Simulated assay, not measured.
Amino acid sequence: MKLLIDLGNTRLKACAHGESLQLVGEIVDNHTLAVWLERNATSITVVAIASVAARESYQLVSSTLKSYLPSIQVFRLQYDAGLLATSYEFPEQLGIDRWLALLPFAKRGEAVVIDAGTACTIDVLSNSKHQGGYILPGLRLQRDVLAQQTAAVSFPRSQLGEVRLGLSTGECVSHGSLRALVTLANDVGEEFGQTVERASLYITGGDAPYFEGHLEAEKRPLLVFEGMLIALDHLIEGNK
């Protein structure tokens, strides 16, 4: 079984791949990774990590993997222009999670991918190349910043999926944050849909459900892991 670890800014997510990709729901940090490995280490044949976290977080996870899987090869996934090139002048500045989320569409050559997480990213794949994108604060980050910089405001969770005019300060913030992100995503989709016939929209990330009903995008909750599997298989094949 392949273990795929997505180490983000705020949490750790993992998928196991035997015959299919399965999200390992209880893994959210290094401690719960250790608990899971204690029960499942003997089933793991290879590990891949994609990390945008601080070096300390990556080193902590690496240490845990070495403790429970001392003889298992661990691959840290990196940008590879041979699989999918980017227009970035300095490709090392492209977040690995953004690159991986585009990788499943590399052969198709066209896609617009929205990753709605701590940050909301929108990336365009055209002519089989990453053309660039946008990075904005995600829904919760926008609300948190406003709450920190202004008088305390309540933000009920039920308001997160609305884009209508707000009828309270909390609604105005929550609805405005979502509407801004939805509008940008639709604009990008329309712009590239006019020039690229098959530039379909795809959405992933923890906040993706809040976009439902406001954005015509295909939901791909495991999109980054789909890309990880492609990148890992490429590395394994190259090491044979």
Results as ranks from 00 to 15, higher is better:
residue 183 T to Q: 10
residue 106 A to N: 07
residue 182 V to N: 10
residue 159 Q to I: 02
residue 53 A to L: 04
residue 237 E to G: 06
residue 216 E to G: 08
residue 99 W to F: 08
residue 175 H to R: 12
residue 184 L to N: 11
residue 122 I to V: 15
residue 130 H to S: 12
residue 33 L to K: 00
residue 165 L to W: 07
residue 18 G to H: 15
residue 214 H to C: 03
residue 143 R to I: 03
residue 160 L to E: 10
residue 181 L to V: 04
residue 48 A to G: 07
residue 100 L to V: 03
residue 54 A to G: 05
residue 102 L to Q: 10
residue 144 D to S: 10
residue 62 S to V: 00
residue 238 G to K: 15
residue 48 A to Q: 03
residue 169 T to V: 03
residue 30 N to G: 15
residue 57 S to Y: 09
residue 208 A to W: 02
residue 15 C to A: 15
residue 224 V to Q: 08
residue 58 Y to A: 05
residue 80 D to L: 05
residue 3 L to R: 02
residue 39 R to T: 00
residue 58 Y to W: 06
residue 161 G to R: 05
residue 231 A to W: 03
residue 143 R to E: 10
residue 97 D to N: 09
residue 180 A to F: 03
residue 2 K to N: 14
residue 174 S to N: 12
residue 22 Q to T: 15
residue 77 L to Y: 07
residue 46 V to W: 04
residue 13 K to W: 04
residue 42 T to M: 05
residue 108 R to V: 07
residue 191 E to N: 11
residue 189 G to P: 01
residue 236 I to S: 05
residue 69 L to Q: 04
residue 137 P to F: 06
residue 175 H to D: 02
residue 141 L to Q: 10
residue 49 I to W: 00
residue 6 D to S: 09
residue 136 L to K: 01
residue 121 T to P: 07
residue 99 W to S: 06
residue 133 G to P: 08
residue 176 G to N: 03
residue 118 T to I: 01
residue 82 G to S: 07
residue 62 S to G: 09
residue 164 R to D: 14
residue 82 G to N: 12
residue 116 A to V: 08
residue 188 V to N: 07
residue 167 L to C: 06
residue 198 R to L: 11
residue 13 K to G: 08
residue 174 S to M: 13
residue 103 L to V: 10
residue 81 A to Q: 14
residue 81 A to S: 15
residue 51 S to Y: 05
residue 208 A to I: 07
residue 159 Q to W: 14
residue 191 E to V: 04
residue 227 G to Q: 03
residue 3 L to Y: 02
residue 29 D to C: 08
residue 35 V to H: 02
residue 189 G to D: 08
residue 98 R to T: 08
residue 79 Y to W: 10
residue 156 P to C: 06
residue 15 C to H: 13
residue 95 G to L: 08
residue 203 I to V: 13
residue 218 E to K: 14
residue 238 G to S: 15
residue 38 E to M: 06
residue 37 L to A: 00
residue 12 L to E: 05
residue 150 T to S: 14
residue 172 C to E: 04
residue 86 T to N: 05
residue 190 E to A: 13
residue 79 Y to S: 02
residue 126 S to A: 15
residue 49 I to G: 01
residue 5 I to W: 00
residue 39 R to F: 00
residue 159 Q to M: 11
residue 132 G to A: 07
residue 199 A to H: 03
residue 102 L to A: 11
residue 216 E to H: 12
residue 225 F to G: 02
